[in-house]
């Protein structure tokens, strides 16, 4: 028995099973082949799905496995609709050439999945790296036990970042872009809070640099 032809038989068998299944996992393929052969009354004896799995691992996963026996090969050729190995050789001389294409397609498909996954992971990594390089989650706190509302001043706009209150232990976390940031804040507890505001100019460092919490100066 030619190793090359056995390999081609295996590829044809698994390609056929794959087409017959909606979710063609390794286990599903092997079980399906075993069940199909069992269900065929013309076929005597039976082949275990574990045996088929070893063939799959040898030729598809390219793992170190022993060569399939002649009986196994005969079962596999019966799955393809031939009587046995010799019948397969006899009847499929012309189509054997096409098997190369199947193998290549399988390999290409595998490569494509690998490439796509690698690309997605790389893009995700870059996005995460950019996010963490340009933004940082920083804690803002105050030593004064006062309810304080904090804004980010950007040009002439102000964006509310959060409130320091007893509820949050006079500390909250917020995302800020790296570089200089200007904070404006006042007490919402005091009636005259807005009349006595405070401000802070802070330097937000990238995530790989150590940074202390932002403590607002006393109002």
């Amino acid at each position: 028995m030619s190793h090359e032809i056995i390999k081609k038989i295996a590829l044809l068998v698994f390609e056929k099973a794959k087409k017959e299944l909606s979710n063609p996992t390794k286990n599903a393929i092997c079980n399906h082949i075993s069940d199909t052969l069992d269900a065929n009354p013309k076929i005597e004896g039976r082949i275990d799905s574990k045996t088929i799995k070893r063939v799959y691992e040898k030729f598809i996963d390219e793992k170190e496995r022993g060569n399939p026996t002649e009986i196994t090969i005969n079962y596999l050729t019966q799955y393809l609709g031939y009587e046995n190995y010799l019948d397969f050789i006899e009847k499929s001389r012309n189509s054997i050439k096409d098997i190369h294409i199947i193998k290549e397609t399988t390999k290409t498909s595998k490569k494509r999945v690998f490439k796509t996954t690698a690309l997605i992971i790389s893009i995700l990594f870059v996005v995460i790296l950019i996010t963490f390089s340009f933004f940082r989650r920083v804690p803002i706190t105050s030593k004064q036990e006062k309810e304080i509302v904090v804004f980010l001043i950007d040009e002439n706009n102000q964006t509310e970042l959060g409130k320091l209150s007893k509820k949050n232990g006079y500390q909250f976390y917020t995302w800020l872009s790296t570089g200089k940031a200007e904070l404006y804040y006042y007490s919402i507890e005091d009636d005259d809070g807005k009349e006595y505001p405070g401000a802070e100019m802070i330097e937000i460092l990238p995530f790989w640099k150590e940074m202390n919490p932002i403590i607002l100066s006393k109002l």
Partner: peptide, 13 residues
């Protein structure tokens, strides 16, 4: 106050 809101706040503070 409009143009130097935070500077003004710092001055008051």
């Amino acid at each position: 106050k409009e143009n130097l809101r935070s500077c003004y706040a710092k001055y008051i503070q």
